[in-house]
């Protein structure tokens, strides 16, 4: 049963209202733009990777609460993680919001599991995934991505 409070959990509303790491990272060595042309959500992501570790990450963008909160939470979670760990989180998050995998609570942690309600709202899955796809693009080839 889809329920609004399942979708808009407090963590999400909080990060939407006050996004963390909402800034350009001046010495970033990876960057990517992500946009969802159908709904207009867009983010730009800056990542500074040193020796395989995400030393700093920031984003700017505009869009719905889900996309902006997802970007904000993501930056707080991946900061300090290795690129390999971030990619593992990407796959776990993707599996959770698309409903193709049970949420891996140990890997994801409570803040990312807050997005599990999104799977009940098919139209909003792309919103939650956009920042993660953008991160994936920044870490792999640095090109922008477009979610169709």
């Amino acid at each position: 049963m889809s329920d609004l409070s399942e979708l808009y959990q407090q963590v999400i509303l909080d990060h939407n209202k006050a996004p963390r790491n909402f800034r350009e990272v001046p010495d970033a060595n990876r960057t990517a733009d992500g946009d969802n042309p159908l709904c207009g959500d867009r983010i730009t992501l800056w990542v500074k990777v040193t020796d395989g570790v995400i030393e700093d990450v920031g984003f700017q963008g505009q869009g719905c609460a889900i996309s902006q909160a997802s970007a904000s939470v993501m930056t707080t979670v991946v900061k300090g993680k290795t690129v390999v760990e971030a990619e593992k989180l990407f796959r776990a998050f993707h599996g959770m919001v698309t409903g193709t995998a049970e949420p891996d609570r140990t890997t994801l942690g409570v803040k990312l599991v807050a997005f599990s309600g999104v799977k009940e709202f098919p139209a909003r899955v792309k919103c939650a995934n956009l920042p993660w796809h953008t991160l994936h693009a920044a870490l792999t080839n640095g090109d922008g991505i477009t979610l169709e």
Partner: peptide
């Protein structure tokens, strides 16, 4: 103010109200 059109659309949908959101 404070609510993106897509979030408006999702909340209204929960109330059985269909509106379009986007550009």
């Amino acid at each position: 103010e404070g609510a993106h059109p897509h979030d408006i659309g999702t909340v209204l949908d929960q109330e059985g109200v269909a509106v379009r959101t986007g550009h």
